[in-house]
């Protein structure tokens, strides 16, 4: 592993539910990179993230995070934060109570200060004491993002973070992520929206049917597919 590689996957295979979800995947992400992970629905994006965070174990291959092999304990490491695509909210709680619970799990010092900081960062300070049940979809997503960064992780995994959000909601999330990346956080951004990924990310990889089909900058993808339009590039790579 090169010294600035923070995520590395080598020859990873994973099948479950009777199908090959990930096949011979080789991937690396540098420290501080805003890395995009693209693919159509069912391509294996979520499975890849779960493999990297240790929620799932690969059938074969190696995965390293921050130079250490991923084990069942690594996903409980305070070095990673995950915004998964699951619902994952206790709707009877208020936003503040929800963050307090998760921030406490990470053993963060200055609990109240950190909660206020997170609420302000995601723009939920004025609705912190309302039940999550009353939040809009965008607000819920922002709350989940706040939980994902509660422990100030080195690497943030995001699985379709803007799914279901209106343009303003998408813009808010993306601006926040850019800010965090500027501060040095490595972001692994998984999405099926090429325009979004191409706007945010330094580098991207494209997965289709469990296998990596492209890896590089947007220019690299244009050269590879000989297409200009983002939609055409995506379709050419994933068909």
């Amino acid at each position: 592993m090169q010294s600035n590689e923070i995520i590395k996957m080598n020859g990873v295979n994973k099948s479950y539910g009777g199908r090959q979800a990930v096949r011979d995947l080789n991937l690396s992400v540098a420290k501080g990179e805003f890395f995009g992970f693209l693919g159509p629905n069912g391509a294996g994006k979520t499975t890849t993230i779960r493999l990297m965070t240790g929620i799932l174990k690969p059938d074969t291959g190696e995965i390293e995070i921050s130079g250490k092999p991923v084990s069942e304990k690594s996903h409980r490491s305070d070095k990673i934060g995950v915004l998964s695509e699951s619902k994952g909210l206790y709707e009877w709680m208020t936003g503040r109570e929800f963050l307090r619970f998760f921030v406490s799990l990470y053993g963060v010092k200055n609990l109240n200060g950190r909660i206020d900081e997170l609420l302000a960062a995601v723009g939920l300070a004025d609705r912190a004491d309302s039940p999550v049940l009353s939040y809009s979809r965008g607000m819920k997503q922002r709350l989940k993002l706040a939980r994902a960064i509660a422990n100030d992780p080195e690497i943030l995994f995001l699985d379709e973070p803007t799914l279901g959000l209106d343009p303003q909601g998408q813009e808010d999330i993306q601006r926040l992520l850019k800010k965090m990346n500027d501060k040095g956080m490595t972001i692994f951004y998984s999405s099926h929206l090429l325009h979004e990924v191409s706007r945010l990310c330094n580098r991207m990889a494209v997965i289709a049917d469990g296998a990596l089909v492209a890896d590089g900058t947007l220019e690299d993808l244009r050269r590879q597919t000989k297409k200009e339009d983002l939609r055409d590039i995506f379709l050419a790579l994933t068909k």
Binding site: H75, V82, Y106
Partner: peptide
Amino acid sequence: EQETIEDLFLSPLP
């Protein structure tokens, strides 16, 4: 069923 289990076990909770 509420899909909170994944986030719980992504935290340091044994």
